[in-house]
């Protein structure tokens, strides 16, 4: 059965690394639902968070093929409930949304969103949360006329602690 899995991949920070990782999905005809790349807690080591919907067996094979890449330090897969995760969404609305006095302030407050900025013509609202939450806010803001909308990929941290970088130590000289 296809299910949502989140992959955490730790790599050296080399040019082209992301390509090396993503072609493994391409080869197996797997669609990437979301992807985030950033530095990890260790300098020089990058971390990708990739969300896919797949069957467990397929996910396991992909993770092994990713981990096999020379510059990949570690790769894991998780079911959603093993993770703490967030996404961030930005909504751009016309300033008239405030003037209309239709309770946009209440919507922002009730949804734990915040008003990032008000420009001459536009205002920008930010919300962090799970996809369903940012989607819900999208629906609520729709009547005000959303000029632009963007949602980030997922960032996720495991609930359990593991030493990601033990591999760096156990690699022996050969």
């Amino acid at each position: 059965m296809k299910q949502e899995y989140t992959l955490s991949i730790f790599t050296e920070n080399h040019i082209g690394m992301l390509h090396r990782v993503t072609i493994i999905f391409t080869r197996r005809h797997i669609n990437i639902e979301s992807i985030t790349a950033s530095q990890s807690e260790v300098e020089g080591i990058h971390r990708y968070t990739i969300v896919i919907r797949e069957e467990l067996e397929q996910v396991q094979k992909v993770v092994k093929q990713i981990e096999k890449q020379v510059d990949v330090i570690r790769a894991h897969y998780h079911k959603t409930d093993e993770l703490i995760y967030q996404e961030i969404a930005l909504y751009k609305l016309s300033v008239s949304a405030i003037r209309d006095g239709l309770g946009i302030e209440t919507i922002i407050r009730e949804n734990n969103a915040r008003l990032l900025t008000i420009e001459k013509d536009h205002l920008i609202i930010e919300k962090t949360g799970h996809k369903e939450e940012t989607a819900e806010l999208f629906e609520k803001l729709k009547p005000f006329g959303i000029v632009e909308f963007v949602r980030s990929g997922r960032v996720a941290i495991m609930k359990d602690t593991v030493n990601e970088f033990e591999k760096l130590e156990y690699n022996e000289e050969v």
Partner: peptide
């Protein structure tokens, strides 16, 4: 080269 930190050629 004798070692690359992200690469483990021979499993134990």
């Amino acid at each position: 080269a004798k070692k690359i930190r992200s690469y483990q050629p021979k499993p134990k």
